[in-house]
Design a protein around this nucleic acid. Sequence first.
DNA 1: ATAAACAAGATCGTATTTATCCTGTTTATA
DNA 2: TATAAACAGGATAAATACGATCTTGTTTAT
Lengths: 133, 133
Amino acid sequence: MRLSRAGEYAVRCMLYLSMAGKGVLVSRKIVAREMEIPEQFLGKIAQQLARAGFMEIVQGAKGGFRLMVSPENLTLLAVIEAVIGEIFLNDCVLRPESCHRSPDCKVHRVWADARDCFRESLRKATFASLTTS
Amino acid sequence: MRLSRAGEYAVRCMLYLSMAGKGVLVSRKIVAREMEIPEQFLGKIAQQLARAGFMEIVQGAKGGFRLMVSPENLTLLAVIEAVIGEIFLNDCVLRPESCHRSPDCKVHRVWADARDCFRESLRKATFASLTTS
DNA sequence: ATAAACAAGATCGTATTTATCCTGTTTATA
DNA sequence: TATAAACAGGATAAATACGATCTTGTTTAT
């Protein structure tokens, strides 16, 4: 069980934009080359990141990506979940009503706690903290 | 990102055996029916659980499964990882040498911490605690 | 007007997951 | 000891997800 490639790429992309700085326009080609991300695939991922409001995509010649939030306010959790969906669920946690085995299944609770703990760790990590040496 | 069906089934199977009690023989057919697990698929999963030492598989007529450990000593983490492998890795954590982006990538650390936190939660949950009302 | 650059849907190959089939082996018991 | 119940384990297949690319179209600087 592991993070998908798309999640990795999303993090790399936002790391690059964070290092460039908020509001700074960087071409997709540059991000793709520097971060070793297939450019077309990056296009797809960027669309999700833009929809989430983390970056803006500028079309046309001299277009590219632009970070729309402060790296201080951007978390690893937000970026990853924007791309791969809410993290680490099982059917029970996702749709408790789908678990008809028990009205209040103890496994649900453990699983939810573990997930919350995981997400909290990722929520604490801002891109500002990830990019400062 | 979610727990695989196989992981769910493994947990259900061990829950059933835990409720039956350590050393008590239960037929595969019964476990499959009661826990709503495809029987042949359960066979595969059981082999992994047996290899991990959590249960014994008894062949022949009147065969079945038998819990080999005390529910107090059996954790959700152990059961799940026996079936789906170590939880929640990305390439970096799995093979740090594969991340040539940075000699000591900060993302690694966050990710590893989050994973440890998650696994710790599952490690604290024993099947004894899951099956007592 | 042109070319650079991104958008977005379609497609494609591969890997993984889930599940089943089939043949064989084990074992209780009649 | 013959038989049937029950599990083993390899092969296979269907479904899904994933990673990546292709193609056509639109936007925009110059």
